[in-house]
Design a protein around this nucleic acid. Sequence first.
DNA 1: CTGTTAGCGCTTTCAC
DNA 2: GTGAAAGCGCTAACAG
Lengths: 368, 368
Amino acid sequence: MATPPGRGPLPHGHVTLSDVARFVGVSAQSVSNALNNPGRVAPETREKILSAVEQLGYRPNRSARALRNQRSRLIGVRVEPSRDDRAALLLDQFLHALAESAAATGCHLILCQADGEDSEVAAYRELLSTTSVDAFVLTGAHAGDSRVAALRELGVPFATFGRSWDGDDDLAWTDVDGRAGLHAATAHVAAQGHTRIAHVGWPEESDTGRDRRAGWHDACTDLGLGVDLHEEVADDFDEGRAAAHRLLDRADPATAITCASDTLALGVVRALAERGLRPGGDVAVTGFDNSPAAALSTPGLTSLRQPLEQVAHDLVGAIEELLHGSATPQQTLLQPELVVRASSLRGPAHDAHPSPARPLTPPPEETP
Amino acid sequence: MATPPGRGPLPHGHVTLSDVARFVGVSAQSVSNALNNPGRVAPETREKILSAVEQLGYRPNRSARALRNQRSRLIGVRVEPSRDDRAALLLDQFLHALAESAAATGCHLILCQADGEDSEVAAYRELLSTTSVDAFVLTGAHAGDSRVAALRELGVPFATFGRSWDGDDDLAWTDVDGRAGLHAATAHVAAQGHTRIAHVGWPEESDTGRDRRAGWHDACTDLGLGVDLHEEVADDFDEGRAAAHRLLDRADPATAITCASDTLALGVVRALAERGLRPGGDVAVTGFDNSPAAALSTPGLTSLRQPLEQVAHDLVGAIEELLHGSATPQQTLLQPELVVRASSLRGPAHDAHPSPARPLTPPPEETP
DNA sequence: CTGTTAGCGCTTTCAC
DNA sequence: GTGAAAGCGCTAACAG
């Protein structure tokens, strides 16, 4: 396929605006208007143009639009390195959901990659400086998040998966109510007859960790149970395992252990096995995230499912609002769903088929 | 941060080519040449230009470039819906690795989303028609893959993770040697003293499934063991579980079960538990993928790690070659790595700390 | 070796 | 209501 020598760049066989214009017998501007500014063109002309667009299969060129408008309909997302010793970052499902929600508003996702939080901002900056990116989605926001400050300074709209935790009303975020989740999980094991209920969570510095632990704490207090059984560790399998051993070595040991993550919970399960104890039958265990590992481990691990499709939908909605110049950023708190499996059930280690259970808390409540 | 009105030539404060040109006192063209065509500019001028580029922090605008060159340095990838009842699609790690490799060559990943293989082509088409995408990465290629034909017709370069399996020399692919992997896994359990070694794999229609089963078959034959113990099922936890029950119900039951995936293997582990058998001690079990679920389950599941970083690197390399007009597409077969854990070890259900073991097969061999 | 010209596809003025 | 002009930032072609 030889390219005829000439001045301009290579032809690419795509239908352009002027192709449509020529076809209909109007100017390119009218076609543009018919598409983007329907009011400014006569209904009759509009009809003809739209049918020609359809017929020729015209699709606007994103690069040209981006060049002209400074808006690319591209949303930047970071992919972080995933460790195979952690029970899934959910990035997988989240990205799919995000891509789907974005597509619904004509947007696409562009990835940038960074290994740490510092290089993350550098990656955003790099993407912004070379590519027209309309907005970013950040994951795992936390109090005093340097990324938030940096993106604000760059003047680019963004929404975060995770609250700011410092009462920042100017931040658009969507988050999952970990506190309600752990309240539900704790109440669930209490309903199985447990009274010595422990929590293995993340260190005090983690906002999300504190939130989840508070759910356990509240539930225990509500039920008149003690709150002395808790451990704060990093989100690591072996840390969870070690924490479980400590909780079981106590004089009055735990008979149920709620965890801030599936990774920790699966570490706890390992510890039980090392002591000849059975999850469910001897000690109830619950996790958080409903990762594949929770569903596939034996016995199945009771966990809390995050409604990632809804999270993605709300984040895209929040961004869309930001781009349309909304004054008040959208903030949404979603409820996780308790998925009960054998690890938290007494009796034979029979897995109920993964069946969602209602959280104790009220249905999703949006804070607009 | 308000943009001072009417001052800067740029709406968003980005440094452009002509800014650099004006700064140095040359034409925009020379700056462009200094960057993209170093030979065509005097070394001295080049120095000055490059230092100005550095100083002003100039970054070329991707949209403008794409518009002009029909090349965007964007690689399209599909994200598929992930089921939480499967042991990870590895998409997570793969995407990160891919984004990293792409970044090394100045490319970025743009996502498209599709639920099935048919809508996948539609998604590619949509992306191509609106966005300048230089190439695609396909995952899970198989014989008679409709996507391959469709992308060829569209004339877009692409590389696949997974062989074509129909001896297509024109296809650029990278794949992992599942046959060698299962050979290694089978030999490993044989070395533990097992002689009744089964395989739970995918249906005959699956090329990858046949390949992996062949590895098991070869190893058994090499070792003088029978090859009657096998089941072909869909990649599903419950299917794996049921298959294991069938294999253990036989008159001369299996004492070791190698599987085509971690999902199947974890189903097998569940079946063992239901019969009061211990993985490792009673029946050895191995999976494939080394998913988080394998590392975190108890006992740890012996599995085969796919070298995803290398896969990603090779795929990007293959695409790069394609874009530079290489005649022979790059085809690479990589070796998986056996990760031995307690599920395949006799004796106390003690997990060795996840430690890589060499496959029996020769080191990575590249077919250029 | 360097500058000028032209144009990629699109949309925001501003005439008509 | 419609079209003509201009230009977003960049680079291939062709002078000078």
